[in-house]
Simulated assay, not measured.
Amino acid sequence: MSIGTKVKRFREAKGISQDDLALRLDVAQSTISSIESDKNIPNSLLLSNIAKELDINMNDLFDDERTINNVYDNNDKVAIGFGNNNTFTVGGLSEKLVELYEERVKELKEQVQELKEEIKILKNK
């Protein structure tokens, strides 16, 4: 997933419009739009400021895993881990985040089942 896509997902999860984020960062709305559509790659300072405004760790924008960490909703910390983060704190989540979480849990359960079946086959050889 691209940095622009992640910025958009985190921004939307926080309920912030492109205009609001642009105002907070003192940039044009078109700058946010071009970042989110991957037409523009922000410099490290702007990326750092975006992460601060979205209350996320800058590394979350670079992680290749399907990870949404440290998302804040209504000033309550909501941590959702898909991938490396095994701690889940759910409260005040948007429907979309809950849906993404449930989808990922289902995928992981299917992977676990497939691995169990492979182990069973290997043990019988």
Rank of each mutant, 00 (worst) to 15 (best):
residue 117 E to N: 15
residue 26 D to C: 14
residue 114 E to H: 08
residue 52 K to G: 02
residue 46 L to R: 05
residue 43 N to R: 10
residue 94 S to N: 15
residue 69 N to W: 01
residue 3 I to S: 05
residue 122 L to I: 04
residue 112 V to D: 07
residue 84 N to P: 00
residue 38 D to Y: 15
residue 58 M to I: 13
residue 101 Y to D: 13
residue 81 G to L: 14
residue 44 S to P: 01
residue 6 K to D: 11
residue 106 K to P: 00
residue 47 L to Y: 06
residue 125 K to A: 09
residue 43 N to S: 11
residue 21 L to H: 04
residue 120 K to D: 12
residue 33 S to A: 15
residue 93 L to Y: 05
residue 103 E to L: 14
residue 93 L to N: 04
residue 69 N to I: 09
residue 87 T to L: 13
residue 63 D to M: 03
residue 48 S to M: 06
residue 111 Q to W: 10
residue 116 K to W: 01
residue 89 T to V: 14
residue 51 A to Y: 01
residue 27 V to Q: 08
residue 14 K to R: 13
residue 60 D to T: 10
residue 96 K to D: 14
residue 121 I to V: 00
residue 33 S to P: 10
residue 123 K to S: 11
residue 38 D to P: 05
residue 35 I to N: 04
residue 61 L to V: 01
residue 86 N to L: 09
residue 56 I to R: 00
residue 76 D to W: 04
residue 91 G to W: 00
residue 88 F to Q: 04
residue 60 D to P: 00
residue 89 T to W: 02
residue 12 E to C: 04
residue 121 I to G: 00
residue 67 T to S: 14
residue 49 N to T: 07
residue 90 V to K: 04
residue 77 K to V: 15
residue 99 E to L: 08
residue 74 N to I: 02
residue 94 S to I: 15
residue 57 N to E: 12
residue 9 R to M: 09
residue 114 E to T: 12
residue 89 T to Q: 13
residue 46 L to S: 08
residue 46 L to D: 06
residue 5 T to C: 07
residue 1 M to H: 06
residue 19 D to T: 09
residue 8 K to D: 11
residue 52 K to A: 07
residue 47 L to N: 01
residue 9 R to A: 11
residue 23 L to A: 11
residue 88 F to V: 13
residue 82 F to K: 03
residue 32 I to Y: 03
residue 46 L to H: 08
residue 106 K to V: 02
residue 82 F to E: 08
residue 33 S to F: 07
residue 59 N to M: 07
residue 111 Q to M: 14
residue 78 V to P: 03
residue 101 Y to I: 15
residue 106 K to M: 06
residue 53 E to I: 03
residue 38 D to G: 08
residue 8 K to T: 07
residue 27 V to Y: 12
residue 122 L to P: 00
residue 124 N to D: 08
residue 110 E to M: 12
residue 44 S to E: 06
residue 71 V to Y: 03
residue 84 N to A: 13
residue 109 K to F: 08
